[in-house]
Each structure stands twice: as structure tokens, then as C-alpha cells.
């Protein structure tokens, strides 16, 4: 698939000399969902702001659908929808009007049916004639999404869409993303909720201190970095680990009632068969066995820590 968004060596140095983004290069395919993970201040919002035209890049090039964001900004920006992190809305405007305003701003002719459909999908139709100040926080976020989608963008940026949002709304938001995916919209979302990236992204990028540390297919990333743990509950607790069992990756669990064996899923041999054979030879009886996949969170924490070191 062709890249709809192409970022080349994008840098941002603020007036004070702070380098918020240190040369990011990234291609995003049409229709994919990319999650950008990173702690606060990592450069996620700076990256998005530059692509959308809110902040001027210091150097580098970005094209959206083949259109350069500065030389051909009209064509590029028409393809982009942005849901900002902050809930910035005109408090006295009515829901329907503010969404129609956004569509007009992007040069699209009035289309009441489309806006009705959008508001219904986002459960805002009942509130269409309410002033924005009368809405709850979650509703306001939906209005931001409706505004961003009002001009039918091909690329949607969601800057921490679920920060400070309750669980129910977060699920709703994920459903919206799912529906958009079905229509072929490319989505780039930033988040520091790893479960969010894990739940909805196709690819995951990790960004910290203005650098893109890696971008990987989510499944590959988890496979590549992922380790698994085998936890064996013992029938009788152990005082010490029998010498025949001592090996790399094996630890005793709490009070000796279990053994925890960490292994690499990608390794040529996992060592599980050998461990179980040796346990049998040592006369240990098993009560229960379970395995755990390391989560994206473990991977992320590992990467960010490694970067800081």
C-alpha cells in the first residue's frame, strides 16, 4: 500500500533552543492505525502540530497524499482532520453550528445530511441545538471528533483522545475508531495508555525525548520484544531450589510454592521440555501451570528506560 503520510527528517527547535523533535522520519500507509506512544513531553503533540500547520517545522519535509504541507498546504490540509488534546471549543456556539463551521472552514459545501449522520454516530444528535457549554466533558470530546470528521478527512490525528476520559467513553471512542478504519481512514493517535495502543493499533511507534525509538507492527513488536513466563504451582512448597533445576530464567515464587520460568518465545529452544523433565526427575509434583505474554507496557517501559539510561 502507498504511504499517505510521509515524514522526512522533521525537526523542531523552539526559540529558546529546546529541541522538541530531533529528526523524525516515518511513512504511514493508507488505512492503517498507528499509535504513537510516549511519556509527557516526548514530542508527540509537536509532531502532530507541525503536520497540521499549527507549528512551523524548523526543518524537514512532510507530504500528505503526495502534497507538501507548506508548498501545497491547501491540498494537504484538506485531507487532514485533527482532534486536539485540549478541549478547545467556543462555549456559546450550538453543537450543529460549530460542526458545520468546521466543514465550511475546510472549503466543503454545506451538507446537512452528512452532519446529521455524523452527530448520530457520535450520539450527539439529541444535543444538536444545545450550546457547547451545556455539555459534559465527554460530550465535548465527541464534538471535537465531529468537527474533525466534518470535512471527510482521509487522515485523522487523535491527540490523546482518551486522556481523562471514563472507561465507557474510551470504549465508545475505540468503536468510533473501528468504524473509521472500516471506511479506510488513516488514523494516527497519540496516547500514553498502552492498552489503547494494544487494543486498536496496527502499528506502534515509540517516541521519547523527540526521537522515534522504533516503529513496528504491533504483533511483530510484541513477538520481537516479547518474553513469556511460565508459572508452575507446586503441590508441596520448596525450601530451596534443587541443584538439578538451577538454570537461567528460573526463579522461585512466593514462599517456594511456585516456580517462575521466563523464556524467549522466539528462541530456538524454549527449555520448557527440559525443565519439566528435570522437575519430574527431582520428584516435584505440579498443581497448576500457566503462561503469561509480556504486555506492550513491559516493552514500552523497557524501551523508555533504556533510552533514558
Amino acid at each position: 500500500m502507498a504511504a499517505i503520510l510521509s515524514i522526512r527528517d522533521l525537526r523542531k527547535i523552539y526559540d529558546g533552543g529546546f529541541e522538541a523533535l530531533k529528526g523524525v522520519t516515518l511513512d504511514i500507509d493508507e488505512g492503517e492505525i498507528l499509535a504513537l506512544l510516549g511519556p509527557n513531553g516526548a514530542g508527540k503533540t509537536t509532531l502532530i502540530s507541525m503536520i497540521c500547520g499549527i507549528t512551523n517545522p524548523s526543518s524537514g519535509q512532510v507530504t500528505v497524499g503526495g502534497h507538501d504541507i507548506s508548498a501545497d498546504f491547501r491540498a494537504a490540509r484538506k485531507l487532514i482532520g485533527l482532534v486536539p488534546q485540549e478541549v478547545n471549543l467556543e462555549p456559546f456556539e450550538k453543537v450543529r453550528n460549530t460542526v458545520a463551521f468546521s466543514r465550511g472552514l475546510f472549503g466543503k459545501p454545506r451538507n446537512d445530511a452528512l452532519i446529521e449522520d455524523l452527530l448520530k454516530k457520535l450520539s450527539l444528535w439529541d444535543k444538536r441545538d444545545n450550546q457547547i457549554r451545556e455539555l459534559s466533558g465527554g460530550m465535548k470530546r465527541r464534538v471535537l471528533i465531529a468537527k474533525a470528521l466534518s470535512h471527510e478527512p482521509r487522515v485523522l490525528f487523535l491527540d490523546e483522545p482518551t486522556a481523562g476520559v471514563d472507561v465507557e467513553l474510551r470504549r465508545d471512542m475505540w468503536n468510533v475508531v473501528d468504524e473509521l478504519r472500516a471506511t479506510g481512514v488513516t488514523i494516527i493517535l497519540t496516547t500514553h495508555y498502552i492498552e489503547e495502543a494494544e487494543a486498536i493499533a496496527d502499528r506502534v511507534g515509540v517516541i521519547n525525548h523527540g526521537q522515534l525509538l522504533l516503529v513496528e507492527d504491533k504483533a511483530t513488536l510484541m513477538r520481537r520484544m516479547g518474553q513469556k513466563q511460565l508459572e508452575i504451582q507446586l503441590d508441596t512448597p520448596l525450601d530451596t531450589l534443587p541443584e538439578s533445576l538451577i538454570r537461567e530464567g528460573l526463579e522461585m515464587g512466593a514462599e517456594g510454592s511456585s516456580l517462575i520460568y521466563t523464556y524467549d518465545t522466539k528462541g530456538e529452544r524454549t527449555g520448557i521440555t527440559a525443565l519439566l523433565t528435570d522437575m519430574q526427575a527431582a520428584g516435584l509434583k505440579l498443581r497448576d501451570v500457566q503462561t503469561k505474554q509480556s504486555s506492550l507496557e513491559d516493552i514500552f517501559v523497557g524501551l523508555v528506560k533504556g533510552d533514558a539510561a
Partner: peptide, 8 residues
């Protein structure tokens, strides 16, 4: 933000 990111 909306004005700055619009194709105008």
C-alpha cells in the same frame, strides 16, 4: 488551532 490547521 482550527483556523491554523484549515486549508485557508
Amino acid at each position: 488551532y482550527e483556523l491554523l490547521s484549515a486549508p485557508i
